[in-house]
Amino acid sequence: MTEPLLEVRDLAVTFGSGRGWGGDRGRIHAVRGIDFSVRPGEAFALVGESGSGKSTTAKCVAGLQKPTRGSISFAGSPLDPARNREQRRAIQMVFQDPYSSLNPRMTIGAALVEILRVHRLAGSRAAAVKRAAELLDLVGMPRSALDQRPRAFSGGQRQRLGVARALAVNPSLLVADEPVSALDVSIQASVLLLLKRLQRDLGLTMLFISHDLAVVRQLCDRVAVMADGRIVEEGAVGRVLSEPSADFTRTLLAAATDLPPLDLDLDLDQDHRSPKRRSTR
């Protein structure tokens, strides 16, 4: 088995001091000691409902939240709270809300160039601009976006720009915190397809946070189901979806709203003269 890229051991996060009148009742145990590891090139999902601790875990991995207890190691070495620049570069994040995750007053170009320059990934300004344009190509956005501010873009486009920003520094791990749940249905698919393509083309390792098992099914290899700050089940996505072992996973699966299968022969030609080719599905 390959060495894991990300290894989380006994991670716990507690909010509130516990001092004062409420005693321990004032404390919120968001994450109660969880273990998981993500292998290089793998897409690993944390699934749960609101308050399950999945987003807090993501923030710990991205360095935005200090764990109360436990350790996170990356590529074999421990990540301490004050990460060095190299460690910060290696773990990037895509956020849920495309409307608040881009600085409204900065052009897309300026934001990308800033990150590239700070990490010394471009020798000159011109090189940084060129690289920024390539990043837009990568996520399927027009280069003219460089001179635009976020308000010029729709939710789906902003999410693509958020992905471009995360990829600017060539991360080895991408933490995606519910990246499509704020988007309209028809836009979700295009962002999921983008993430899948990046996964395949760049060999990106991904920690994917979601409440939606159907979305996880599209993108991930393994999944850990979280409830109340604990991991209740972990395994290959196909296995967890078809033969869940934890009660909570079964509840979650039963609650998932599914669509009846389409009863259309989509391979029929547009003007239905002749079938183009028979479906193999």
Binding site: V185, S186, I187, Q188, A189, S190, L192, L193, K196, D212, L213, A214, V215, R217, Q218, L219, L241, L253, A256, D258, L259, P260, P261, L262, D263, L264, R281
Partner: peptide, 28 residues
């Protein structure tokens, strides 16, 4: 939902991620 009669409904249904279909069946 099974036999939509408008291309938008069809497109929407094909864009929804479902548990019984993997990403290659997803159409933006």
């Amino acid at each position: 939902l099974r036999r939509p009669r408008h291309p938008y409904t069809l497109a929407l249904l094909r864009a929804v991620p479902t548990r019984d279909r993997d990403i290659d069946g997803l159409r933006a």
